[in-house]
Each structure stands twice: as C-alpha cells, then as structure tokens.
Simulated assay, not measured.
Amino acid sequence: MELPYAVDAYAMTSDRLVAAASALLALAGVVAASLALARVAGRLRGGNARTGALVALIASPVGAVLGAVVVVTADGGLGTGNGLAGGVVALLLGVVGTALGRRALVRSARPGPVPGPGEAPRSIGTARSVGAARGGRAR
C-alpha cells in the first residue's frame, strides 16, 4: 500500500529545497563562527574575527528561522517530501552557529584583562603619551 502523500526518496520538492538552503545557510554560520573563534585564539592568521562573528550572527539565525518555518509548515512526517529532516538540521545548526558566533564576538571585543570589583579601569592615555611610548618625541 502506497501513502498518498509519499514522494520519491530522491525527488527535490520545493519544501526540501528550502530546507536544504536553510541548512546550508546555518552551516555557513557555524563555519564562520568556528573560523572566527580560531582567529581570536591565534590559530589562524589573516581576516578579522569580528567580521566572521558578525557573519555567523546573521547567517545562523536566518537559517534557524527558515528551518523552523519548514518544520512548522510540514504537513507530514519524514519521507513525505516536506523537508522536515532538513528543517530540523537547519534549526539545530542555526542555534549552534548563533551561540558560537556570540562567543567569538565577545572574545574578539576583549582588548585585555577586565578590572575586578573595586578597581578603576585603566586609562587608555592621550595621544602624547601614546606617541612617546612608541618612540616618538614627547611635546
């Protein structure tokens, strides 16, 4: 007996296409966040960790939302051509990419140690003191 809503296993329906695109978008966010974390840790040279984190924070939530839309609008279960499996994968990858992207963004924003409670923040200094510290002439 054949199910009335069943689709061939390799047939590309529009729902499967949207689910696959959202999963790829979320995966791109995970990759961008992972590379940004590696740059922050000093394992990779070149590129900007902050830019990679921002790319991850844009791509991952968009992929997660599209995956959630696919999951919510799916009429049947797995194998019905509604893209349910791809939507779930996109949703999970989107959450992971967003978390990693936020972590990379926070780590890339830390220039040095954060002062503890009761300590005054260190002064960055004026242009004169910075120039003199670099070997320039103090005025």
Results as ranks from 00 to 15, higher is better:
94 G>Y: 12
54 L>C: 11
5 Y>S: 01
62 V>I: 15
73 T>D: 11
116 G>C: 08
78 L>Q: 11
134 R>Q: 03
62 V>K: 03
132 A>D: 02
136 G>S: 10
109 A>M: 12
91 L>F: 07
13 T>P: 09
136 G>R: 00
120 A>K: 08
60 S>W: 04
133 A>K: 03
18 V>S: 15
53 A>L: 08
11 A>V: 07
8 D>G: 07
82 N>F: 13
24 L>F: 13
10 Y>S: 12
123 S>Q: 02
110 R>T: 12
47 G>R: 01
110 R>W: 06
93 L>Y: 03
89 V>R: 05
13 T>S: 05
22 S>K: 08
16 R>F: 09
39 R>E: 06
133 A>G: 00
15 D>N: 11
21 A>S: 09
108 S>A: 12
123 S>V: 01
52 G>Q: 04
8 D>V: 00
52 G>L: 04
42 G>A: 06
53 A>G: 04
83 G>D: 02
72 V>Y: 03
50 R>P: 05
16 R>P: 13
81 G>A: 03
131 G>M: 08
56 A>F: 10
111 P>A: 09
115 P>W: 00
5 Y>K: 02
65 V>P: 04
42 G>M: 04
89 V>K: 02
49 A>S: 12
121 P>L: 09
100 L>N: 01
63 G>D: 07
70 V>D: 14
53 A>H: 06
34 S>T: 15
30 V>Q: 11
37 L>F: 05
2 E>Y: 02
72 V>L: 04
58 I>V: 15
27 L>H: 14
32 A>M: 13
2 E>C: 02
27 L>K: 10
2 E>N: 03
119 E>K: 14
125 G>P: 09
83 G>A: 01
67 G>W: 02
18 V>F: 07
35 L>A: 10
129 S>M: 08
2 E>V: 00
132 A>W: 02
85 A>S: 15
121 P>K: 05
95 V>N: 04
7 V>E: 15
92 L>C: 06
80 T>Y: 05
10 Y>G: 14
118 G>A: 13
84 L>F: 10
57 L>E: 13
31 V>R: 07
83 G>R: 00
112 G>F: 01
87 G>Y: 07
94 G>E: 14
59 A>L: 00
22 S>R: 10
7 V>T: 10
138 A>Q: 11
33 A>F: 13
83 G>K: 02
139 R>W: 15
94 G>W: 11
100 L>I: 01
39 R>V: 06
60 S>K: 01
82 N>W: 15
139 R>P: 15
4 P>G: 00
74 A>S: 09
58 I>D: 09
85 A>F: 15
112 G>K: 01
117 P>F: 02
77 G>V: 00
100 L>M: 08
102 R>Q: 06
129 S>Q: 11
7 V>P: 02
126 T>V: 10
50 R>W: 05
120 A>L: 11
24 L>T: 00
47 G>A: 04
20 A>T: 10
42 G>I: 08
100 L>T: 00
107 R>S: 13
99 A>G: 10
122 R>I: 03
86 G>D: 11
110 R>N: 13
92 L>A: 09
